[in-house]
Design a binder for these strands. Structure first.
Length: 440
RNA sequence: GUGGCCUUAGUGUAGUGGUAACACAACAGUUUGUGGCACUGUUAUCACGGGUUCAAAUCCCGUAGGCCACCCCA
């Protein structure tokens, strides 16, 4: 009976501390905050990427997060899942339909041509590290907002660049010390030989459709290449016997693919030829590839050649090749293989103050130290000496600089060695020198 | 878009209808200007909204997220 009474008290009490209440909001589905701990991974990956792009001569590019939705409809392709079901679209007040970019390639190509850079640098090598959006059911390694790092080489059909793109991905992941990286490659030919192949493929599947899954039946008419992609149990036996793209490549494509493989050999990049690899974007031609790591059931990255994309978008004829990796997936791989992130950088010096006068004075002291390139941590929100020192201890600072009323008055500061616990007064004007000497 | 499981303090968990618990972390304090150890205290409208009941973290319905599978992809 009397149970309700304390509850009532509890309810009326919290007026004094409204603290601790959470919001009625949370991150949107499939999207995540990137907290400092996440950036220890992200920054490490970015660092690896920067190193590799420097060697390979890629330059950074960024495009708007939104584009005219049609660039993806035409470019990425109406038959691709990404465009059919996974685009976040926004209707502007002016009535245009914009899309949050589900991938980078069409935008990068657009920028390259639109800016006129295609007349200045050809081929051009770009890299990016950018957020993308896809409206999907979130799952392990799959999010609605995610980062991709990627490379695009525009303006050349040279097989070397296919190999170099693959290598850029391979090396970036390798730079992070990830083990057991495997590259799968295939060639899906050019316009002409693909047409022949698709014809053969359809002939082969024609009388088998009744025994296959309904998705395959849909694929048959919309995007026959993807028949090879099916993971349905009952379709597997047919898949195994299906004609392979590689057997139907024209002489030029065959030669191109052979060169790509030779170059990969030359760079000692391990690969596997996978004739069922076709990829989900419509614009690919010739080389396609994916990069895997043992123990993860999703690809870390993928890419391929897209020699017709520019024309499809109404631009000039322009051969190109590109690749992208999911940054969150790389992080997942790093965690799986227990690859350490960057370590949180610790300041070696901690400034402790006592009293308002010292607090004020310490501001100019900090500026002097910053000017000398010394990073100093402080805890201006804590007034007690104890908690400041406790914090200095937890931060594993080597030196504590202690400034009190008396020190301000005497123009000195206490320099305390946190390890030994010994301390001495140092004249304020010599503080930079003293700190530098001790940190050596 | 379809199905299954899940959601209790910052984190990890206990609690299966009767006053919400433990560990670690964080914060504060254990007398006046000195950290680590110890001790004490503080920190949860039990995801949100409704319903059943004298009584709900607990049972029911709905919503939102998370995870997993399908689908697809980075």
């Amino acid at each position: 009976m009397p149970i309700k009474i304390p509850r009532a008290h509890k309810k009326s009490a919290p007026k004094s501390k409204p603290k601790g209440r959470k919001f009625a909001f949370q991150t949107p589905k499939g999207m995540h905050d990137m907290l400092p701990a996440d950036f220890l991974f992200f920054d490490k990956i970015e660092k690896a990427l920067k190193k590799i792009v420097c060697y390979y001569g890629f330059e950074r590019i960024e495009t708007p997060i939104m584009e005219d939705a049609r660039i993806f409809e035409r470019g990425t392709g109406m038959t691709s899942e990404i465009v059919q079901k996974q685009m976040f679209t926004v209707k502007t007040r002016g009535g245009e339909v914009m899309a949050l970019r589900p991938e980078m390639t069409p935008g990068v190509l657009r920028a390259y041509v639109e800016s006129g850079l295609s007349h200045v640098m050809s081929p051009a090598k770009f890299y990016y590290l950018s957020p993308l959006f896809r409206y999907e059911q979130p799952q392990h390694g799959r999010f609605r907002q995610f980062y991709q790092l990627g490379f695009e080489i525009l303006g050349s059909d040279e097989a070397v660049y296919d190999a170099q793109t693959i290598s850029a991905v391979y090396r970036t992941i390798g730079e992070l010390k990830l083990k057991n990286i495997m590259v799968r490659v295939n060639s899906i030919g050019c316009k002409t030989c693909r047409a022949t192949y698709v014809k053969k493929l359809k002939e082969y599947y024609k009388n088998k459709l009744s025994k296959m899954c309904k998705d395959c039946n849909k694929r048959y008419s919309e995007n026959p290449l993807r028949l090879l992609d099916c993971k349905e149990e009952k379709c597997q036996p047919f898949k195994a016997q299906a004609p392979q793209t590689l057997d139907y490549l024209c002489t030029a494509c065959k030669h191109h693919f052979k060169l790509v493989l030779e170059y990969l050999d030359e760079m000692k990049i391990p690969y596997l030829i996978d004739s069922t690899l076709v990829r989900g974007l419509d614009y690919y031609s010739r080389t396609v590839f994916e990069v895997f790591i043992e123990g993860l059931d999703f690809a870390l990255g993928g890419g391929g050649r897209y020699d017709y994309l520019s024309e499809t978008l109404g631009g000039p004829r322009m051969a190109a090749v590109g690749a992208a990796c999911g940054v969150e997936r790389i992080v997942e791989a790093m965690k799986l293989q227990q690859i350490p992130s960057l370590v949180k950088n610790k300041n070696r010096v901690f400034l402790v103050y006592m009293g308002d006068q010292a607090k004020k004075k310490s501001l100019s002291i900090l500026e002097n130290l910053y000017d000398a390139g010394i990073c100093v941590k402080e805890a201006f929100s804590k007034d007690s000496l104890k908690s400041q020192l406790r914090m200095a201890d937890r931060e594993k600072a080597e030196l504590a600089l202690i400034l009190g009323q008396q020190e301000v008055f005497e123009d000195v500061i206490i320099v305390r060695d946190m390890q030994s616990g010994t301390q001495e007064s140092v004249p304020l004007r010599k503080i930079v020198e003293e700190v530098k000497r001790r940190l050596r």
